[in-house]
Design a protein around this nucleic acid. Structure first.
Length: 510
RNA sequence: GGCCCGUUCGUCUAAGGGCUAGGACACCACCCUUUCACGGUGGUGAUACGGGUUCGAAUCCCGUACGGGCUACCA
C-alpha cells in the first residue's frame, strides 16, 4: 500500500493569480482527485517586503470561483498547519542550524553592498552574472573564511547574517521528473543559495523542502522556471530527510505569451485577460481585468487551461471537471511550453455556454445584467431569453447585446439602416402589420411569421426587405435572435408599442 | 556568458519505427439562414536543419540552429 497522495500549491500572495498559476493548481487538483488524495494550499509569504494586503484572500476567491477547493489551507484548516509560512518562521532556523552543524551550510556575513561590490568586480562579458559559488565563497566574509573566534563574536553580537548552502564540487545530482524523465546537474555550477535570510525568514529553497516534508507531500509539482534550482532542493532533501522521503517531482511547461513567459503586461498589450479574476493593486489602484469579469464560465476556464499542455490522446476537447479528473494523466503532460491563444479560449467559452442549461446560466447572466445596470425582475422571461440567445454568445457579456432589449426598450433606433430603403409601400405595410397583429389571438412566433409573410405577398413586397426594418423597430439595431421569436417573447402589448413608437421615429426621419 | 528545458500547420495538439502526417481554433469558399450567429460541406496550411542507426524515422542517437527558463537575503 503506497502513501496517501498529497499535493500542494504554494502561491506567494504578491498580486493577481494568473493563468499559469491556475493551471498549476488545476494539474495538482486533478492529480490528487484522480488518486483520491489531498490538495493543500500553502501560502509562501516569506518575503515581507513583497507583502500585498488582500492578495491571499484574493487567491482563495479565485480558487473558489474555479471550483478548485483545497482540502487543507489557511482557510480550510487541517492537521499540518499553520499553512502560512510566516507563521512557521521559528521552525526553519533549526533545520538551517542542523545543516551548518553537519557542514552542509555556513554563515555568511556579507552585506548587500559587499555582495554588489563582488558582482561588480567579477562581472565580465564572459560572466555577466557572477555567482556566490565554490570559487567565490572563499573570497567572501563567511564562516568558511573567518577565524572561529571572530565568527563567534559576530554571532554573539547578533550581526546580521544569512545561512547559505555549501554546494559540493564536482558531484552530479539527478532525479526523475515525471514529465521530463531524468534531469542531471553538475553541483559545481550551482551557487550557494541563501537558505535563511538575515531577518530569520527562510528563502523558498529551505521552506519548500522543510514544509513539503512536514506536510507529508508525496508529489511536488511546479512550473518549469524552478527546474534550475532543483539541485539545491535535492541536496536539502538528502541532507535533512533522506531521499526516500522526497516527493516525486514534475515541472510543468510554461504558459507563453506572444513573447516568452506569459505576463500581466501581455494581457494589457494584446487585450486579453491574464488573471483569473479582476485584481486591483492596493498601492497603485490599477485594476487588471480577469477572466471572470470578462465573461468566462469557470467550467470553460479550467477546460481550456487543462488542454494547454495536456490532452487525453483522443480528439476530445470539451471536458467537464469530472471528466478531467477521470482522464488526467501526468504522463501525458507535455514537456514543451504552450502559447496562450485567446481566440481558442473564447471558443471554449462559447462551447460551454452552448452546453450549459439556461437555468444554470440564469444567475450568471442575471449578475452580468446587474453589472450593466439592468435589473431583471422577470426571471422566467430571462430564462426563456437565455435559451433563445445562448448559441450566439461567446462571452457572458454578449448576453447584454443579445438579450437586454427584452427588458428595456431601445433608447436608440438605428433608423439610418432603415430610411435609405424606406418607401410609402413599406409604410403602409407596417401600418397594416400593426393592425393585423392587434387582431390576432395566437401570439406565437410561427403565427406572427405567417401573418407577416402573407401580408408581404399581398403588398408585393419581398420579405427580406421587411425583416430588417421590423427587427430594428423592435430591438433598435441589427442584432438578436430570430425576429418573430423576439416579438413572441416581447408579448403583444410591448411589440405593438415598440412598432408604433418606431414607426413615428421613422416618419420623422423621412 | 554559464546552466537547464524544449522544437509537428499561424496557435493548441494526434501519430510512442511502418499506409495520402489526423483533429481543433483562426482564416478562406460554399450551403443553410432573406440581421448576426449556430449548424453543414470543402479548402489553404506543419514534422527547424545536417548527419547517423534501420529494410523503413515526425518518432531512436549525435551535432547545429532557433525558442524559452534560471542565473536576488523574490517566489
Amino acid at each position: 500500500m503506497s502513501k496517501k497522495v498529497r499535493v500542494r500549491f504554494a502561491p506567494s500572495p504578491t498580486g493577481g493569480l494568473h493563468v499559469g498559476g491556475v493551471r498549476t493548481v488545476l494539474y495538482n487538483y486533478l492529480f490528487a482527485k484522480k488518486l483520491g488524495g489531498q490538495f493543500i494550499v500553502r501560502v509562501e509569504d516569506t518575503d515581507q517586503s513583497r507583502y500585498v494586503p488582500g492578495a491571499e484572500e484574493y487567491i482563495f476567491d479565485c480558487l473558489r470561483w474555479c471550483g478548485l477547493e483545497p482540502d487543507e489551507s489557511v482557510q480550510h484548516g487541517g492537521p499540518y498547519g499553520p499553512y502560512r509560512q510566516s507563521e512557521r518562521k521559528t521552525l526553519y532556523r533549526e533545520y538551517a542550524a542542523q545543516l551548518v552543524a553537519a557542514g552542509h551550510a555556513y554563515y555568511a556575513f556579507d552585506t548587500t553592498a559587499e555582495l554588489e561590490q563582488m558582482r561588480e568586480k567579477f562581472r565580465s562579458t564572459e560572466n555577466p552574472s557572477p555567482q556566490y559559488d565554490h570559487h567565490l565563497r572563499l573570497k567572501m566574509r563567511n564562516s568558511l573564511t573567518l577565524p572561529a573566534e571572530e565568527i563567534n563574536k559576530l554571532l554573539a553580537a547578533k550581526t546580521p547574517h544569512v545561512i547559505r548552502i555549501m554546494m559540493p564540487v564536482g558531484k552530479t545530482v539527478s532525479f526523475q521528473d515525471m514529465i521530463r524523465g531524468e534531469v542531471c546537474f553538475d553541483t559545481s555550477l550551482v551557487d550557494d543559495k541563501v537558505l535563511l535570510k538575515a531577518d530569520g525568514m527562510p528563502t523558498y529553497h529551505l521552506a519548500v523542502v522543510v514544509d513539503d516534508y512536514l506536510m507529508k507531500i508525496t508529489h511536488a509539482f511546479r512550473g518549469e522556471e524552478w527546474l534550475p534550482s532543483a539541485p539545491v532542493h535535492l541536496l536539502l532533501w538528502q541532507y535533512l530527510f533522506g531521499w526516500e522521503e522526497m516527493p516525486q517531482w514534475a515541472h510543468f511547461p510554461l504558459l507563453l505569451g506572444p513573447s516568452g513567459k506569459l505576463s500581466k503586461r501581455d494581457g494589457a498589450k494584446y487585450g486579453f485577460p491574464v488573471f483569473a479574476m479582476n485584481w486591483q493593486d492596493p498601492k497603485t489602484g490599477e485594476t487588471t481585468e480577469g477572466f471572470r469579469e470578462k465573461g468566462f464560465l469557470p467550467s470553460a476556464f479550467i477546460n481550456l487551461l487543462a488542454l494547454l499542455g495536456w490532452n487525453d490522446g483522443s480528439e476530445k476537447e470539451i471536458f467537464s471537471k469530472g471528466e478531467l479528473i477521470a482522464s488526467f494523466d501526468m504522463a501525458r503532460v507535455h514537456s514543451s511550453g504552450a502559447k496562450f491563444d485567446y481566440e481558442k479560449a473564447k471558443w471554449f467559452n462559447h462551447e460551454w455556454i452552448k452546453r450549459t442549461s439556461a437555468s444554470e446560466l440564469l444567475p450568471l447572466v442575471s449578475n452580468t445584467f446587474g453589472k450593466a445596470n439592468l435589473q431583471v425582475t422577470n426571471v422566467a422571461l430571462l430564462e426563456q431569453v437565455i435559451t433563445l440567445v445562448k448559441d450566439r454568445c461567446t462571452l457572458l457579456t454578449d448576453f447584454i447585446e443579445q438579450g437586454s432589449f427584452f427588458f428595456k426598450r431601445p433608447t436608440q433606433i438605428d433608423t439610418g439602416s432603415i430610411l435609405p430603403k424606406w418607401s410609402v409601400e413599406k409604410s403602409t405595410f407596417f401600418d397594416q402589420l400593426i393592425h393585423y397583429y392587434q387582431q390576432t389571438n395566437s401570439w406565437t412566433a410561427a403565427a406572427l411569421e405567417k401573418i407577416c409573410k402573407e401580408l408581404a405577398q399581398t403588398h408585393q413586397l419581398k420579405t427580406g426587405e421587411l425583416l430588417l426594418p421590423l427587427r430594428i423597430m423592435l430591438v433598435g439595431g441589427k442584432f438578436g435572435p430570430g425576429v418573430f421569436d423576439i416579438a413572441c417573447l416581447l408579448g403583444k402589448d410591448e411589440t405593438l408599442e415598440r412598432l408604433a413608437q418606431a414607426k413615428r421615429l421613422i416618419l420623422q426621419g423621412v
